[in-house]
Design a protein around this nucleic acid. Structure first.
Length: 203
DNA sequence: CAGTTACG
DNA sequence: GTCC
């Protein structure tokens, strides 16, 4: 694993988690979950996704991985980023700009995320700030190349985690979700929010 | 039979 | 083909 710069940096208490969840319900109503597909194969992801903020991450066979301003199914602009999320970013990102995108991933109990690097952002100096809600998941972080040693740990509901500095471009993924490990989400599963700065600051 | 991971 |  890449040294340093990659931390569990905070925790939202149950009340904070529920408040965030209620904001997310509004977002998901306006921007329903969609299931992205892989660029070349068209294979569906096991997670479902949506976004809030000015930009959202999407993927499909035709267009590949990208950020865009509108929902791929409804065509509408993404819902606004809630103030709760902006506050968390300002507290933990340690970076002089606002997040442009918050990717919202829903993991059912069988969903996984293969090891990958977040590299579709033109501003990799900005961290990715992750918030976990609902069931716990086994997360791994490796190094800058695939196949190196990985560190594994559990992300639990309320955890605020930053991939920044040297670890910003580290391989990472979700090995599995621990079904029944949280009662926050009715019906179970895990939500992961990742705030990102996509474009460099202008000045 | 489950896990398979390295890397195009 | 293996996943923001």
């Amino acid at each position: 694993m890449v040294d340093g710069c990659q931390h569990l940096v905070g925790f939202l208490d149950r009340h904070g988690q529920e408040e965030l969840l209620s904001e997310l319900r509004d977002i998901i109503e306006k921007a329903p979950f969609f299931r992205p597909t892989m660029p070349r194969s068209g294979r569906p992801f096991s997670v479902e996704m949506t976004n809030c903020g000015d930009l959202g991450w999407v993927s499909d066979k035709a267009g590949g991985y990208r950020y865009q301003r509108n929902h791929p199914v409804t065509g509408l602009a993404w819902p606004k980023m809630p103030n709760d999320l902006l506050r968390i970013w300002r507290e933990v990102a340690n970076w002089p700009g606002e997040p442009e995108a918050c990717l919202i991933n829903f993991y059912s109990s069988s969903a996984k995320m293969g090891s990958h690097v977040d590299s579709d952002e033109a501003e990799p100096a900005a961290p990715v700030v992750s918030i976990s809600l609902g069931d716990e998941a086994v997360f791994h972080v490796g190094g800058l190349k695939r196949g190196g040693a990985k560190t594994r740990f559990r992300l639990k509901s309320g955890d605020v985690f930053v991939l920044g500095g040297a670890s910003r471009l580290a391989y990472h993924g979700i090995d599995r979700v621990i079904a029944g490990s949280s009662d926050l989400l009715v019906g179970g599963g895990r939500l992961n929010l990742t705030m990102r700065r996509v474009t460099p600051l202008e000045y």
